[in-house]
Design a protein around this nucleic acid. Structure first.
Length: 222
DNA sequence: GACCAGGCACATC
DNA sequence: GATGTGCATGGT
């Protein structure tokens, strides 16, 4: 595929407005996996505090988290919110990594996206977005990540139906864009940027870099 | 004080 | 299968 699509136009507009985002903000693929769980329905600012706690306690590694008690882990990740449920989810993910791969992420990079999705989605607490975030950002494989920002922005710009589900949105995005890790990486990060700065739940989208393409309709206007 | 944030699983109908 | 609800901190 080498054609100009609506989503590619969006991409160039967002990129020229914000520049490369160079996600994911982390020091290692393992930290990305942990962050992917902690950021579920949570602002990144709060996730950073939780990750800092893990670093300061010297437990930001698979073996340490696997051995940590649920209560101790929950206390460390408290700033990220939902700390009891996220402690369980994090331990589920890390226990899978330890029991199946000896706590080593590198063998995962040699597996297919399909196989990785199947394994990750089988873990309680890992849903589609978290699985795709891990595959794209930690394992650097081309799978598009859909989140609330993606949904909100693409529905307001009439790219997708309001009742479109995760897979449908993902298929739409992947059909409009070249299969490319860097493109998918930047695209999702830029959508988050637009979502945070302009495309808010109950606000008009003034100054949005996507404004020039068509009317951005927010729910209050409909 | 209300609203929102890189979701997910589970209960209920 | 669709829809509703609990989970929780911290910034605006």
């Amino acid at each position: 595929m080498n054609r100009q699509t609506k989503l590619l136009d969006f991409y160039h507009a967002m990129l020229s407005a914000y520049g490369p985002q160079n996600w994911w903000p982390a020091d290692s693929p393992f930290e990305i996996m942990v962050g992917a769980v902690l950021t579920q329905n949570t602002s990144w600012q709060n996730v950073e505090k939780a990750i800092l706690n893990l670093k300061n306690a010297d437990v930001l590694n698979a073996e340490a988290i696997d051995q940590l008690s649920l209560e101790d882990l929950a206390q460390l990740i408290k700033p990220a919110g939902y700390f009891n449920i996220k402690a369980k989810r994090l331990k589920n993910l890390i226990h899978w990594l330890c029991s199946q791969y000896d706590g080593d992420i590198s063998p995962l990079a040699r597996q297919s996206i399909w196989s990785l999705q199947e394994q990750l989605l089988a873990i309680n607490g890992i849903g589609r977005e978290t699985a795709d975030s891990i595959i794209l950002y930690a394992l650097e494989k081309p799978t598009f990540v859909v989140d609330t920002y993606t949904y909100r922005i693409l529905t307001r710009h009439f790219c997708i139906d309001v009742d479109a589900d995760y897979e449908r949105i993902k298929d739409y995005c992947q059909s409009q864009l070249e299969e490319d890790v860097t493109l998918y990486n930047e695209y999702h990060a830029l959508l988050v940027c637009v979502g945070k700065n302009h495309c808010k739940p109950k606000a008009k989208c003034a100054g949005c870099p996507l404004e020039k393409f068509n009317h951005c309709t927010n729910p209050q206007e409909m």
